[in-house]
Every structure is written in structure tokens, then in C-alpha cells.
């Protein structure tokens, strides 16, 4: 984490700047200094959170250091088997919430990808007037405040279908706006699809379904993959919509939220460390893959 904070070293002075003033480009220096401060603002809280996960203090802190410990990850039991320190293995609700969050996110992928793809295909073949109206309607969930999405989905499903708030309503509420993101990604991709390809397939006697499966879908696969990742992350980390649509059930994120109401526990820091490690690992893999391609 701290290594990443060092990233913004000075941007190389541009040829134009050097030619113009000849001296030190103070604006550039100020900008670089600002970027360093900004990166500290981004990463310092996360670094402190990670550090506090290894502090034996039972309120998360780095200033009041009481020794290094892994107890918040592993928990600790005494000889009699009584739990002394509640770590991640004892906090089973976090694991349960995690499983539910993953289940919900997979449900969102299953729902939002087909919806977004279908809408993108419909929009790509609509005339300008009706198309732009439909487009505005379908983009609107992105611009709707999260709690409004949660509230409106929860009340509709109870009023109209008698379904109480729970994981199912969360999947629907998430999909309503995540499908919009997917749709936008598919539209961007479809713009680059040469319509002649589909037409050629049809002219050569392929059925519509065959042409779609063999021409359009393969072209869209990379976007389906990216959109799935985006959908998963969006759903997984969402709090504001989930909070209103989850009812008496809970996900990892709402569980962390309700714990925070009753005081802070270093086990949440431990979860934070796991998230950071996962994210940094994923980022590293991504960078390596790009290096290899580039």
C-alpha cells in the first residue's frame, strides 16, 4: 500500500514548457506535489486500516500499539476451548454474509447481462426518436439515488407480489441499475460491429439464431466478460440500495455496517486486509497481463 503511494513521482517536463520558460515549471511542481498529497489521502486511510488489523488493541488503532497479533484473523481459544479473542473464524455471520453477497452478485450477473444485452440490441436497431426516448428511460436507473432504488423495489415486490424484502429483492434492485451499465458497455461494443458480417451470414443461408450465435455473440464475448466483472463488483460492494432491499436478512456489507453502529472491531480491519490483498493481487495480475500483451 505504501509503495503505491509513492507512485506519482514528477511527471517529466514537457518540451514545450522547457522551451517557453527555460526555468523551473512551478505549476508543474505544484501539481506533482498535489498528486502526492491526493494519493496519500486515498491510500493512507487504507494503510492505517490494514495496520490496525495486526494490533493487539481491541479497538482498531495504530497510535495505541499493544503488540503484533494475528488474533483478529485466526481468533484465539484457551486450553479449555473457550473463545478468548473473537477472530474471523468465530464471526460466522461475516462468512454467511459473504456467501450471500456472492450469491446475490451471481444472481445479478445472470439477470443484468441478458437484460442489458437485449436492450442494447433493441436500441441499436431503433430509429432516432423512439430510440433516444427509450434510451433515456433505460439509463435513468444509473441517475437514480441508490436508496430510492432500494425503497421502490422493496415496496413494489411486497405490494404487488407479496414478496418480503430479502436477497431476491436485492438481486432485482441491483439489476435495475447494473443492467444499465451493462447496456452502455454492450452499446459501445455493438457500435464497432460491422453489420455486413451479420448480413453476410444471413445471405449465405444461416438462420437468424445461427447468425446470432456464430457472429454476434462471439463478437460480444469480451464485453460479456467485462460486464460480468463490473456487475459482480458493483453488486458486491453496494450498500445504499442493499440496505433498504435486504429486509431482515444480511450481506457481508450490511453486516459490516451494522457492526459499525455498535462500535468498531478489529475483525473488520482483518476483512479489510483480505480485501486489499485480493484487490492488489488482481491489479497486479491485470498489469502483468497487459505487459505481456503490450
Amino acid at each position: 500500500m505504501t509503495a503505491a503511494a509513492d507512485v506519482p513521482a514528477p511527471v517529466p517536463a514537457r518540451a514545450g514548457a522547457a522551451a517557453g520558460s527555460g526555468g523551473v515549471d512551478w505549476a508543474q511542481v505544484a501539481l506533482n506535489a498535489y498528486i502526492v498529497v491526493f494519493m496519500l489521502y486515498l491510500f493512507l486511510p487504507l494503510a492505517l486500516m490494514a495496520l490496525a488489523a495486526f494490533n493487539a488493541n481491541d479497538t482498531p488503532s495504530v497510535t495505541d500499539w499493544r503488540g503484533f497479533t494475528l488474533d483478529w484473523f485466526t481468533g484465539r481459544t484457551d486450553e479449555a476451548g473457550e473463545v478468548v479473542v473473537r477472530g474471523l473464524p468465530q464471526e460466522t455471520r461475516f462468512l454467511e454474509g459473504l456467501m450471500r453477497s456472492v450469491g446475490i452478485a451471481l444472481g445479478v450477473i445472470a439477470l443484468a447481462i441478458p437484460l442489458g444485452l437485449a436492450a442494447a440490441l433493441v436500441l441499436s436497431r431503433l430509429g432516432a426518436a423512439s430510440g433516444s426516448f427509450l434510451y433515456t428511460l433505460l439509463v435513468s436507473p444509473i441517475l437514480t439515488p441508490g436508496i430510492v432504488l432500494g425503497v421502490s423495489t422493496m415496496t413494489l415486490w411486497r405490494d404487488a407480489f407479496g414478496v418480503e424484502a430479502g436477497p431476491l429483492t436485492v438481486v432485482v434492485a441491483h439489476s435495475s441499475f447494473i443492467a444499465s451499465y451493462c447496456m452502455l458497455m454492450f452499446m459501445a461494443r455493438l457500435q464497432r460491429l460491422d453489420p455486413a458480417l451479420e448480413e453476410a451470414a444471413l445471405d449465405l443461408g444461416a438462420s437468424n439464431l445461427f447468425a446470432f450465435r456464430r457472429v454476434t455473440l462471439p463478437f460480444l464475448w469480451p464485453t460479456i466478460a467485462t460486464a460480468s466483472v463490473v456487475a459482480f463488483l458493483q453488486s458486491f460492494e453496494n450498500y445504499n440500495t442493499t440496505f433498504f432491499a435486504i429486509g431482515s436478512s444480511f450481506t457481508l456489507v450490511t453486516e459490516i455496517g451494522s457492526r459499525m453502529r455498535f462500535g468498531l472491531s478489529p475483525t473488520i480491519n482483518a476483512i479489510g486486509v483480505l480485501f486489499i490483498v485480493l484487490t492488489v493481487a488482481a491489479a497486479a495480475v491485470w498489469v502483468l497481463l497487459r505487459r505481456r500483451q503490450g
Binding site: A4, V7, P8, M39, L42, F43, P45, L46, L48, M49, A52, P60, S61, L233, F236, E237, N238, Y239, V253, I256, G257, M260, L264, I268, N269, I271, G272, F275, I276, T279, V280, A282, A283, V287
Partner: peptide
């Protein structure tokens, strides 16, 4: 990458980091 990484980490955990501070 430096901008995106904090965002792949949960919103709630980002908030938690601040409440801790």
C-alpha cells in the same frame, strides 16, 4: 491503477477506515 485500486475495495471498508481514524 492508483485511482482504481481503492475503489475495488468495498465502499463500507473505505468508510470504516475513516471512522477508525
Amino acid at each position: 491503477l492508483g485511482l482504481v485500486v481503492p475503489y475495488a475495495i468495498n465502499e463500507l471498508l473505505r468508510i470504516f477506515a475513516w471512522t477508525m481514524i
